[in-house]
């Protein structure tokens, strides 16, 4: 699955406003809803929070990857958000998260869903790439970091 096939400027927010994990997830879901990618917002929200309850998707160095399998989507969908100050996301390193990559994949559909999540996370492996994302002021600049 190529990142460029899934991400467009419409699916990027460079200025998330939420101040809690729930608010950030809700805000990012609205991006997907607005793009017509999610059929049932409430169901997707519940599935994402249920996944967070099992184990937080807050990783290290400010990156979080909220994701879930849900009946609310028909195909793999993704969006990216940046929070300027960073918020507590129960991350592995205890640091606030400021780069969020959300993916929703359909239930019972074969496809490279985890591979996509890994592929997009790999881009942010280097400190330089993360800094570039955080310095971006437009969706186009964020996409450029991902080679789009």
């Amino acid at each position: 699955m190529k990142i460029k096939n899934l991400l467009t400027e419409q699916l990027i927010s460079v200025d998330l406003q939420g101040s809690s994990k729930e608010e950030i997830i809700g805000e990012m879901l609205n991006i997907l809803l607005k793009a017509g990618k999610v059929a049932d917002r409430d169901l997707a929200y519940a599935d994402l929070l249920s996944r967070e309850k099992k184990m937080s998707t807050g990783m290290q160095y400010g990156v979080a990857i909220p994701h879930a399998k849900t009946l609310a989507v028909a195909e793999l969908t993704a969006c990216i958000g940046i929070h300027r100050k960073g918020i507590d996301f129960d991350s592995l390193d205890g640091q606030p998260a400021n780069i969020f990559i959300m993916t929703l994949s359909p239930v019972d559909r074969t496809g490279p869903h985890v591979q996509f999540l890994a592929e997009i996370s790999m881009v942010l492996k280097s400190r330089a790439a993360r800094l570039k994302v955080l310095e971006s002021v437009s969706a186009a600049e964020v996409l450029a970091v991902f080679g789009i």
Binding site: V114, L117, A118, S121, M122, K125
Partner: peptide, 8 residues
Amino acid sequence: HESFVRLM
């Protein structure tokens, strides 16, 4: 492909 395997 290590990230993928770890996530899986």
